[in-house]
Design a protein around this nucleic acid. Structure first.
Length: 288
DNA sequence: CGATTAACCTGGAAGC
DNA sequence: TGCTTCCAGGTTAATC
C-alpha cells in the first residue's frame, strides 16, 4: 500500500495508541514476514514502553524503553488496524473480533497507554513487509537507514540538494526518484505525480536537469506529498488508515492510473509506458 | 555504470 | 461459471 503519505497516515493513526504505551503482549503467528522476525521478537518487546512513534521514508519507527527501536515496513500490502483491546478479542483467540482477513493477520500487540488498552494488528497478504529491532543509538547507521536520502519534507531537502543527488546519474529521472538514496519515501504514484506537476518527462536523464527544473521538481515533490498527507493518503484497493478511514488522494491523481484520460493541464491523453519494469504515467505533450 | 528481469507472495480484475 | 493471464503502492539480487 504505502508510499510516504500513506505511511505517515498510518503513523498518525497509531501514534495515540502507541506513544507512551506499554506493550503487554505480542503474538507472531509465523516466524517470518518478508524476512524472519528478529530472534526472541516477542520477548524483546513485551514490557517495553514506547516513546516516540516516528517515520523515516516509508518506514515506521517505535522508540522503546529497552534501548531498541522497532522498525516496521509495510511492503506493498501491509496495514495496521487498531481495536479496543481485550473486549474486542475472543478469549484464547489469536484473531481479534471483526478481522476481515484473519488469514493474513501476522502480528498482534496488546498495548496499554493513557487512553486504555488497545489491540494493534499487522495484516499483510503479500508479506513484503517486515519488522526489525535495532539498537536505537545506532539507528541512523542500521542497514535499513544507512544510505537513505533526505526526508523530502525536511529541512535538508532543498532544490540544490536534489540537483546534487541527481548529478552524474544517467538513469531516467523516474528511476532516480524511485531510488531511496536520492530522496526517501517516494514510490511509483508520487514520482509520476510530481514529475507531471513539474512538467518534466520521466525519461529525462536525471543528471542533466537544470537548476530551474530541479527547483520545480523540488516544489512539486513537496506539494504533492503535503497534499496527499492532508488527504489521508491514497486508497488503492482497500487501503485505510489505522482508524479505518479511507484516504482520498487517489481522486486527485493527475496522471497515475489514468492512461488515456485527458491531461488536466493540456488535455492530451495520458500515456502509460514501462520503465525499469514499472508502469509510468505521463503526459507526452506537456512533460518535457 | 545502467537497464532489464526475476524474485519474494497473494488476490483482484480482466480476458476467453 | 471456470480457467488463465496480467497487474499491483516495494525492495533487492542477478544478469546482460
Amino acid at each position: 500500500m504505502p508510499e510516504l503519505p500513506e505511511v505517515e497516515t498510518v503513523r498518525r493513526g497509531l501514534e495515540p495508541v502507541f506513544s507512551g504505551a506499554r506493550i503487554d503482549s505480542v503474538d507472531a503467528r509465523r516466524p517470518d514476514l518478508r524476512f524472519p522476525l528478529p530472534a526472541n521478537f516477542a520477548e524483546r518487546l513485551v514490557g517495553a514502553r514506547i516513546g516516540a512513534l516516528g517515520r523515516r521514508g516509508k518506514y515506521l519507527t517505535a522508540d522503546l524503553s529497552t534501548g531498541e527501536t522497532l522498525i516496521m515496513h509495510l511492503g506493498m500490502s501491509g496495514r495496521f488496524t487498531v481495536s479496543g483491546g481485550g473486549k474486542a478479542r475472543q478469549p484464547g483467540d489469536f484473531h481479534f473480533a471483526g478481522s476481515t482477513d484473519p488469514a493474513h493477520d501476522h502480528v498482534t500487540m496488546e498495548v496499554t497507554g493513557a487512553r486504555g488498552s488497545g489491540l494493534v494488528v499487522y495484516n499483510d497478504p503479500r508479506r513484503f513487509g517486515f519488522m526489525d529491532l535495532v539498537v536505537t543509538s545506532s539507528l541512523d547507521r542500521c542497514a535499513h537507514f544507512k544510505g537513505m536520502g533526505p526526508e523530502p519534507l525536511g529541512d535538508s531537502f532543498s532544490p540544490g540538494a536534489l540537483r546534487a543527488a541527481l548529478g552524474g546519474r544517467r538513469t531516467p529521472l523516474k528511476s532516480a526518484l524511485l531510488d531511496q538514496s536520492v530522496v526517501a519515501g517516494l514510490g511509483n504514484i508520487y514520482v509520476c505525480e510530481a514529475l507531471w506537476r513539474a512538467g518534466l518527462s520521466p525519461r529525462r536523464q536525471a543528471g542533466r536537469i537544470s537548476a530551474a527544473s530541479a527547483a520545480r521538481l523540488h516544489a512539486a515533490i513537496r506539494d504533492v506529498l503535503d497534499e496527499a498527507i492532508e488527504a489521508g493518503g491514497s486508497s488503492l484497493r482497500d487501503f485505510a488508515g489505522s482508524d479505518g478511514a479511507l484516504g482520498y488522494f487517489q481522486h486527485r491523481f493527475s496522471v497515475y492510473d489514468r492512461e488515456g484520460a485527458p491531461c488536466p493541464r493540456c488535455s492530451a491523453p495520458v500515456r502509460r509506458f514501462v520503465q525499469s519494469g514499472r508502469s509510468t504515467f505521463a503526459c507526452g505533450k506537456c512533460q518535457k
